[in-house]
Computed example of a mutant assay.
Amino acid sequence: MKIDFSPEILRAGRALTGLSQEKFAAEAEIGVVTLRSIEKGRKHVSIEMIERFVNVLERYDVEYIQPTAEHGAGVRLAKGKRAAIALSERRRQPE
């Protein structure tokens, strides 16, 4: 099975978690420089790394959606509340 996990999908998924690049990278157990390179499309992503990203997304109630004949791959909020809470808290923090 082909996994379509583009930099755009990763950025969208991370945005739904409400996590900064630094926090997302720490949760995925990779360096923040590596995450930044991947999000910019400058670095190859292994299946192992995709699995790490999907695991982080799932911990924050964000689902990875496999492409079908009707739609492409993507991410969406699951029915849980953790991602919405994290995003809400992030928006309240001053930059």
Rank of each mutant, 00 (worst) to 15 (best):
M1H: 15
K2L: 15
K2A: 14
I3W: 03
D4Y: 15
F5N: 05
S6M: 02
P7E: 05
P7C: 00
P7K: 03
E8T: 15
E8R: 06
I9P: 04
I9H: 01
L10I: 00
L10F: 06
R11C: 07
A12C: 07
A12S: 11
G13S: 03
R14W: 10
T17M: 00
G18K: 04
G18W: 07
G18C: 09
G18P: 05
S20T: 11
Q21R: 14
E22P: 00
K23N: 14
A25G: 06
A25F: 09
A26D: 08
A28H: 04
E29V: 08
I30M: 04
G31W: 04
V32M: 05
V32N: 06
L35P: 00
R36N: 11
S37C: 04
S37A: 13
S37R: 06
I38Y: 07
I38H: 01
E39G: 05
E39F: 03
E39C: 03
K40Q: 10
K40F: 14
K40I: 02
G41M: 04
R42F: 14
R42E: 15
R42Q: 14
K43D: 11
H44D: 14
S46A: 10
S46E: 10
I47S: 13
I47L: 14
I47F: 15
I50H: 07
E51Y: 07
E51F: 02
R52I: 03
R52S: 11
R52W: 00
F53T: 03
V54R: 07
N55R: 08
V56E: 00
E58V: 06
E58D: 14
E58G: 08
R59H: 03
Y60C: 01
D61C: 04
V62I: 05
V62P: 02
Y64S: 08
I65Y: 09
I65T: 11
P67I: 09
P67G: 12
A69L: 14
H71V: 15
A73I: 09
A73L: 02
G74A: 03
V75R: 02
V75N: 04
R76D: 02
R76K: 13
R76N: 01
R76G: 00
A78L: 13
K79F: 15
K81Y: 10
R82F: 10
R82L: 08
A83S: 08
A83Y: 02
A83H: 02
A83L: 01
A84K: 15
I85Q: 10
A86R: 03
A86L: 00
L87V: 07
E89N: 10
E89D: 12
R90H: 09
R90A: 15
R90T: 06
R90W: 13
R91H: 09
R92F: 07
Q93D: 07
P94S: 09
P94T: 11
